[in-house]
Design a binder for these strands. Structure first.
Lengths: 360, 360
DNA sequence: CTGCCGTCTGACTACGTTGTCAACGTGAAA
DNA sequence: TTTCACGTTGACAACGTAGTCAGACGGCAG
């Protein structure tokens, strides 16, 4: 009995069908197949259908490598990200991928290593070697980056300004949003607001701290010394234990929700009720924020929408649309919103008074 | 003296340097450059250095498209993921990218859309069109998937069995881990344990529910009717409100930490103390779990380590290592661990004394 | 009829790389 | 001396696609 597979044992990795194979089956030239596949004009309906039928029959898939080789474009953008599973960055990354794929391009990600500044440059270099049409720095850290880039590959950043990169975001969402949270606390009657910041190497942390400072300065108040955490609940907890030892702390604005949550835990453990004796705010509005004890007053960022809008522009350009094409306007409505829940209240000594201050 | 830049002023998008340019500068053949770049043997040290110097001077970067075209391999793996910012999936994705890049391959991600089963097939098809050497289904949903795949592109899955895909994970971490949590509750004296499950379309949800059921069956107990959430704190909160209306509920095992957190919130709002009157467990051990009020008893999964180990095998194979190479053993130590915190306690009627230590 | 234009199609080539194979120079073995 | 093996190098073809250009065909105006 003869085996159906040829002798020798080697599976003989068959070559996947190409345009030439489709052309042969359809009885046309390879170039015509190329035209059909790319939706070029000047192909009769009869031929187009014949080609499509042949392509389907063979299970034809265009070879992106060959296409990239000849066009010089890869149909791919690279994203440099800090590989954390943090809620904010992760959401942004998903949004970027969705928008990119919708535009017919693909995303290739390179994660960096926190605390190792070279790794941003390494990631960029890696992406350039892989072949990308553009690079997006979704990396939230910007200390001492000195990027060697390729003049043919544009570099974009999300939410910070790097010398070589164009920022995809219009304004500074962190500062204004955080300032709003701090003003909310000041409006409630707190004399000063303490601050648990994120790592100074993150531009988002610096911008939020700036918002905190600005809120004080606008009222001529000297802000207290800020504490620095690392975004984790654990660091918020530690900050809380330190703040509880200081006198007069009635309000703490944390740079993100996770740290706020840890800080609240420290208060609860110490028997200090939130918000009755200490008010706490976060930033991000993570899904859990509304279900903490107490529900957390925080700020919802909407920069994703804005980032994806700008990304759309970039993608349209990369997809081959002419530069002169009418660009849709970039509305930037409602970039952030203060969500007042139950972790904030007037300070203890004001409880019997009416907060008859300006009501905004 | 002739100007170094030619007249005309046009930037004329210069072609990036190729091996031919390097070869010309180094005074060798293009093929020799190829040998140097790929580290092939039989190149004299003198020539190798000459080539490397020329490459550096020109800023040469190998063209992956041309290489892929001729070798038929892309140096890329595709990952199909459900685009949520959930802690577990996001961590896994980062781990996959790190391991892959370390092996010299790159990752291209395609996110699907929950509640749209075709989108898994679409994502696979999309990745095949982009050109990948292998596909990893990190997608947690598996309802009615009917995948058309390419025989040349192996398909792998993380943590579930799909007919066409090889599972990168050894065992079933969800069932055993969850069972452990439920047994912890039963050991504390609870007669039955309620369950807030994840969406039935997620295999992880089904496996955890199976663990819950198994724990009951092993003791000959009939488990109560399970509730179904959608992983969010909001759904856990809703489930909590419903359970609070039922009599006799003393212990609830939630399929993840977020839902547990929402459920605890519902109890707290209703004045039902946790764990004094109701014990609650979660699953995942998110960073916030230890800092909730009360700190959450949960199960830490360690499947990432295991998945990345198996991934290493796959990557080594794709990188060109021969099949006969000695494969490191796959140890699977400590796949999950029950972390007992303060959200679990014996049921009320087992307490000899009244719970008078309510610090709220 | 002729000339012309617009539509449609195919032959040929280039893209930058790797695989194949031949050729060269050198030193050792016959 | 010749022969051979080995290390080293280069010429050439091929991968699958898109750009360029020319040619075939039909309809319409002159």
């Amino acid at each position: 009995m003869a085996p159906s597979t040829p002798p020798g044992g080697t599976p003989a990795r068959r070559r996947p069908p190409g345009m030439t194979d489709v052309a042969r089956l359809a009885g046309v030239s390879q170039k015509t197949v190329s035209r059909v596949v790319n939706g070029e004009p000047y192909v009769s309906e009869r031929v187009r259908e014949k080609v499509l039928r042949a392509a389907r029959e063979l299970g034809y898939r265009p070879n992106t490598a060959a296409r990239a080789l000849i066009t010089g474009r890869f149909g791919r953008i690279g994203v440099v990200a800090l590989g954390t599973a943090l809620y904010g960055p992760a959401s942004l990354q998903v949004a970027i991928e969705r928008a990119t794929r919708a535009a017919g391009l693909s995303v290739i990600v390179a994660n960096t290593l926190e605390g190792q500044p070279d790794s941003v440059g390494d990631a960029v270099e890696w992406l350039l070697r892989q072949g990308v049409d553009a690079i997006i720095l979704s990396e939230p850290i910007d200390e001492g980056v000195e990027l060697r880039t390729d003049p043919d590959v544009p570099l974009y950043s999300v939410g910070r300004s790097v010398p070589q990169a164009e920022n995809l975001l219009q304004g500074d969402f962190n500062t204004d949003g955080f300032r709003e949270a701090v003003e909310h606390l000041l409006d409630l009657g707190h004399e000063r607001v303490w601050h648990v910041a994120g790592p100074a190497s993150w531009f988002a942390a610096r911008e939020r701290a700036a918002g905190w400072r600005a809120a004080h300065e606008a009222r001529g108040i000297e802000p207290p010394e800020p504490l620095e955490g690392d975004w984790t609940p654990a660091s918020g907890y530690e900050a809380g234990r330190r703040l509880l030892r200081e006198p007069g702390v009635t309000a703490v604005a944390c740079a993100n929700d996770d740290m706020a949550l840890g800080l609240i835990r420290a208060c609860t453990e110490a028997g200090v009720p939130v918000p009755e004796r200490v008010s706490v705010t976060g930033f991000d509005d993570i899904p859990a924020a509304a279900y903490l004890t107490p529900p957390l007053t925080t700020v919802r960022q909407q920069f994703e929408t804005d980032a994806v809008l700008s990304l759309g522009l970039l993608l349209r350009r990369l997809s081959g649309a002419p530069d002169g094409a009418p660009e849709p306007s970039r509305p930037s409505p409602d970039p952030h919103r203060l969500v007042v829940r139950r972790s904030t209240a007037p300070p203890p000594h004001r409880l019997d008074e009416e907060p008859g201050k300006d009501d905004r």
